[in-house]
Amino acid sequence: MFAVDGGSGEAQVKLPTDDIDVLKQMLVRTLSDPTSDPKTASELGLDPSRPKGASAVSKP
């Protein structure tokens, strides 16, 4: 089965060479680190003085 325009049917993007170089730099900058174990937002908000499982949100 072929695309209506005669192409392969796959998504295709044509970029200037300069843009390709920038995208390759971004690829390196945004790679994830599988060895990192950062704290989650809930862990950052934990109050060590509260019992485990208690809400970290302060109540008025």
Rank of each mutant, 00 (worst) to 15 (best):
D33S: 13
D19F: 09
R29W: 09
K39D: 07
Q25M: 03
K52A: 12
Q25T: 05
L46M: 13
V28D: 15
I20H: 11
P38W: 10
A54C: 12
Q25Y: 01
L31C: 14
S55A: 11
D18C: 00
A41M: 10
P38T: 09
Q25A: 09
T17P: 00
D37E: 14
D5E: 09
I20R: 13
P34H: 02
Q25D: 07
A41F: 10
T35C: 05
A3V: 02
R29K: 14
V13Q: 06
M26Y: 10
K52F: 07
A56C: 15
G6D: 01
P51M: 00
G53Q: 11
G53D: 10
R29V: 07
D5M: 10
M26I: 09
E43N: 02
L44E: 11
S58W: 13
L23E: 01
F2V: 12
G6T: 05
S58A: 15
S42W: 06
I20C: 11
A11S: 04
D21F: 01
G53P: 07
D18I: 00
D33N: 15
K59F: 04
T17A: 08
A54N: 11
T30P: 00
M1S: 11
A54E: 13
T40H: 05
P51I: 00
T17F: 00
V22R: 04
T17V: 04
D47C: 06
P48N: 04
A11M: 05
L23W: 05
A41N: 10
S8G: 14
G6W: 04
D47G: 03
Q25P: 01
L27H: 13
G45Y: 05
T35D: 13
G6R: 08
S32W: 13
K14L: 05
A41T: 08
A41G: 07
S32I: 10
D21A: 10
T40F: 06
P60Y: 13
L27V: 10
V57P: 01
P48W: 00
S8K: 04
S42D: 10
R29P: 00
R29G: 09
D19V: 07
S8W: 02
K52P: 03
K59M: 03
P34S: 03
S32E: 13
T17N: 01
A56H: 15
K52Y: 08
P34F: 00
Q25I: 01
G9V: 05
P38C: 08
D37Y: 09
K24Y: 09
P51Q: 00
V22K: 05
I20Q: 12
G53V: 09
T17W: 00
T35S: 14
E10D: 15
T40N: 06
P38I: 12
P16S: 04
F2M: 08
V57K: 14
A54I: 06
A56N: 15
P16E: 06
V28E: 15
P48R: 06
P38R: 11
D18W: 00
I20D: 07
